[in-house]
């Protein structure tokens, strides 16, 4: 975010969460940019935004920061709690530190970039959003993920992609284990191009696309059969 006098500062030490959120939720596209100071782990901060505005949060946030985001670009200069960018529809959310569990849960669109690591269930039930994690992701990430992409530059925890549908996972490091119905898949040209574009959007200009492996659904559990009992 560019500095200068045009930045509108919203100070959570002086204003209520309701007042700060209401301001961010009701301004039009192009307003701001906004800087939120003294977040001190506040929950549900900058959630439900609908305009293409830029918001920078100076510090750590609690649960559901930028939840259900549409169009806005929200940057957390610190760590984010559970469910950052949950059910995001569009826009971008950046976390300069680590993110807790369920990051970008059920997100339909938009891009979440986490500079550090994420805890468990990153991208759970993802429905079309994109996630780039520059560190590691915790266990059960992309559980039941339906559509969208997860890119992990570090390692992935146990049961990656358990019960995954049509979402795609790219991991550069080690995968502790794959979940039910998740398998390694070939990297085609289209996949390389998609991955390269995601890495570029996340500012990972030096990352080598060839160093990643792709994972997705074996589609063996798409129809319930008792013969699949051992898979669960």
């Amino acid at each position: 975010m560019a500095g200068g006098s045009n930045v509108t500062v919203l100070d959570l030490e002086r204003e209520s969460l309701r007042a700060v959120n209401r301001r961010l939720q009701t301004v039009g596209a192009g307003a701001g940019p906004f800087r939120v100071s003294n977040p001190r782990g506040a929950h549900a901060l900058a959630c439900g935004l609908t305009a293409g505005i830029e918001v920078e949060i100076e510090g750590h946030t609690g649960y559901y920061c930028a939840g259900m985001n549409e169009a806005a670009r929200v940057t957390v200069k610190g760590n984010a709690g559970v469910g950052v960018a949950e059910n995001m529809m569009s826009g971008e959310v950046w976390v300069t530190g680590d993110a807790s569990q369920s990051a970008a849960a059920t997100a339909h669109g938009g891009l979440l970039v986490v500079e550090g690591n994420t805890a468990a269930r990153c991208g759970i039930s993802l429905k079309g959003g994109d996630i780039v994690v520059k560190g590691n992701v915790g266990h059960m990430s992309m559980f039941l993920a339906q559509a969208g992409n997860l890119v992990v530059l570090g390692d992935a925890g146990e049961s990656l992609g358990d019960s995954i549908y049509e979402a795609r996972i790219y991991v550069r490091g080690k995968v502790a284990s794959l979940g039910a119905d998740c398998i390694e898949k070939d990297m085609g040209e289209a996949h390389r191009a998609d991955l390269a574009a995601l890495l570029e959007r996340a500012g990972c200009v030096d990352a080598d696309v060839g160093a990643f492996r792709r994972y997705g659904s074996a589609r063996a559990l798409y129809h319930f059969k008792s013969e699949n009992l051992d898979s669960y």
Binding site: L17, R22, Q25, H43, A44, G48, Y63, G67
Partner: peptide, 8 residues
């Protein structure tokens, strides 16, 4: 809290 914040 989040749902209430999003729906005013």
């Amino acid at each position: 809290l989040e749902l209430r914040e999003i729906t005013n």
